[in-house]
Design a protein around this nucleic acid. Sequence first.
DNA 1: GTACAGTGACAACCCCGATTACCACTTTGT
DNA 2: ACAAAGTGGTAATCGGGGTTGTCACTGTAC
Lengths: 209, 209
Amino acid sequence: MTRTKRAYAGIEGGQRRAERRERLLLAALELFTSRGYQQTKIVDLCTMAGVSTRNFYEEFQAKEQLLLALHRRINAEALRRVTAVLDTITDADVVTRVRTLLDTFVASVTADPRLPKLAYVEAVGVSVDMERQHREWLTHWAKFIEAEARHAADQGVAPARDYRLTAIALVGAITGLLREWQAHTPPLAADEIATEIRGLMLAAITRPA
Amino acid sequence: MTRTKRAYAGIEGGQRRAERRERLLLAALELFTSRGYQQTKIVDLCTMAGVSTRNFYEEFQAKEQLLLALHRRINAEALRRVTAVLDTITDADVVTRVRTLLDTFVASVTADPRLPKLAYVEAVGVSVDMERQHREWLTHWAKFIEAEARHAADQGVAPARDYRLTAIALVGAITGLLREWQAHTPPLAADEIATEIRGLMLAAITRPA
DNA sequence: GTACAGTGACAACCCCGATTACCACTTTGT
DNA sequence: ACAAAGTGGTAATCGGGGTTGTCACTGTAC
């Protein structure tokens, strides 16, 4: 493993590696969602990213690492946006918070149709590691929703009960809608999805126990 | 292609083929859900099913055909049960019908943890054909739910509105719960899932427009 | 009993694609 | 300018596994 010790060709070595890594991720997003994950060969990725197979193995141990990285990035970016905006309205009423949470999430993940395609279609059932990472994010989002539901219960607009399964079901509902959204021709409107989700979620947590 | 013209070894040739086909399907259900679809090799399937690779190609063109057949069978069996029981209660109230529909569906698909694993994890994002078949069943089930929702609207217990996206979201919710059900250790109770789905669905279609 | 058709197992073939060894080029230090 | 070290691309290797050719066996018809 070569270690960069000083600038080379005017550019710091690590930066060049970072750029190659980024180009590989971009190429992977494109190819995984067009040809499919399994159908995408490492050479294809390298060709599109403009790097050699040699470079590929400098950045990633295997194709699966690219998938894991993209999946993590999509979820992390959505989470970053959601937490950022929710932190600015800590004392708003529950309906507003839930609406904001969902709108922000949907906006983040529908910014590019390839995002839901990758996270909810291509990344499913690939390997045990991928499934583990999926479940990690699933619980993450479910806990998020659960917290809002408890918050609603505290404010008296929802019954005090266990929202664990409700939260998981809601994540499933969002996933299902987004999977449909990216698969549908002609394209569905993203705000239709957001509206549906919003109504469903409010109905789900305010329904009588 | 050899054509069977008369009985052989006391058993009609076509029947033997049918039994081999069945054993291959059984082996596929087992291996696809334990090792994973992609990781399962044709030789593995043949070994477990007790047939030769030659026999395999007499029944299926490729491994994918097995997956498609299993996915179709799981959905068709659930549909058969659901329609059968719903036909016996055509004039029941909507709440009863919805409850029956969901309980029957959940019972059918949780009869064996491998069923949801295959249909909702392994069969996702495998090929364009597989995705097409998934969407066919998705629309099928969604129309089913939509019909019940319209039925509810006719009876005045739900608002008259477009339930297309709601139905898709509900299918997603069921899928999400069942995916969690089969992945969870220790195993979740199937009736917890059924109860949650029931509450969610009734809340979703009776919520004010 | 013999020829023939159906059946099935084994193993070799062959292709694809992941991985890496090697070499050529580029830049820097003296 | 030359040596040394970093960098990158190409091409060969290597293995896995899908596919099929061949052969042996079993049962049937005449």
